[in-house]
């Protein structure tokens, strides 16, 4: 039994099928990358795991029990936390309120003061900006808030959708280091990325998605050396 198991799911956006008979698994403590081009279905996959979408067929199991027909709030309570693409901060709330709201679930609520300290330790910049409105932050700072907000929920699995989107190379490096630090503390990480080199570089395993199907999977180091990946995603 895997920590998280996705078995043969089909997912639709309205009438359009986006994910076809997709299966994957994530073990406790692993860092797993999901890579694929624009429109491959990566975000749709994460939304389905976090309960924003329901699969039309197949099942999703977390710690052995099915979660695919549960609402997002129940899945958050179980410990699967999804940091969405494009950060999706609460723009007119302060940085601190954004972080505190991350700890809304019952599991995290009682520990929020302590978790907040940990987040400020990981991202000292956020402590300086805590009373600023989230909309006034730079892109990199916003991504720190998005990750911090995810951590506030005390994730067992943290799923990040393109955390490096739109960031300068130096900031991208910082964000990946933060994700690495989170993984090193034992949190299981599912990382969706277009920056294949960085993401595979810090992952244990990876899946390659094309047109809503997994076309390749394996240890990250192997994927990095695969000729198809080298030409299609690494541009070598």
């Amino acid at each position: 039994m895997s920590f998280l198991e996705v078995n043969h799911i089909d997912v639709f956006h309205g009438d359009v099928q986006v994910i076809f008979d997709l299966s994957l698994h994530v073990e406790e403590g692993e860092v797993v990358s999901i890579i694929g081009g624009n429109g491959a279905g990566k975000s749709t996959l994460l939304k389905t795991i976090s309960g924003l979408l329901e699969p039309a067929a197949g099942e999703i199991l977390f710690q052995g029990s099915p979660i695919h027909s549960q609402p997002p709030e129940t899945i958050v309570e179980r410990g699967i936390i999804h940091i969405p693409e494009g950060r999706r901060l609460f723009t007119l709330m302060t940085v601190k309120d954004n972080l505190i709201i991350g700890a809304y679930n019952r599991r995290a609520d009682g520990l929020k003061e302590a978790t907040l300290e940990q987040v400020y330790t990981l991202f000292p910049r956020l402590r300086e900006r805590q009373s600023q409105l989230a909309m006034t932050l730079s892109g990199g700072e916003q991504q720190m808030v998005a990750i911090g907000r995810g951590l506030m929920a005390l994730p067992k699995i943290l799923m990040l959708d393109e955390p490096s989107l739109g960031l300068a190379p130096l900031l991208t490096k910082n964000i990946f280091e933060a994700v690495r630090a989170i993984a090193d503390q034992g949190t299981t990480v599912v990382l969706v990325e277009q920056d294949v080199k960085h993401s595979l570089g810090m992952s244990d395993r990876g899946y390659v998605l094309e047109h809503g199907r997994t076309v390749m999977e394996g240890p990250a180091a192997e994927l990095m050396n695969d000729p198809h990946i080298k030409t299609a995603y690494l541009g070598l």
């Binding site: 924003l52 997002p72 709030e73 969405p84 709330m93 679930n105 907000r149």
Partner: peptide, 15 residues
């Protein structure tokens, strides 16, 4: 407040 600003993101906070 969070829900009023972004429903979907609020759901992802467990709201």
């Amino acid at each position: 407040r969070a829900t009023s600003l972004d429903r979907e993101a609020a759901s992802l906070m467990g709201i």
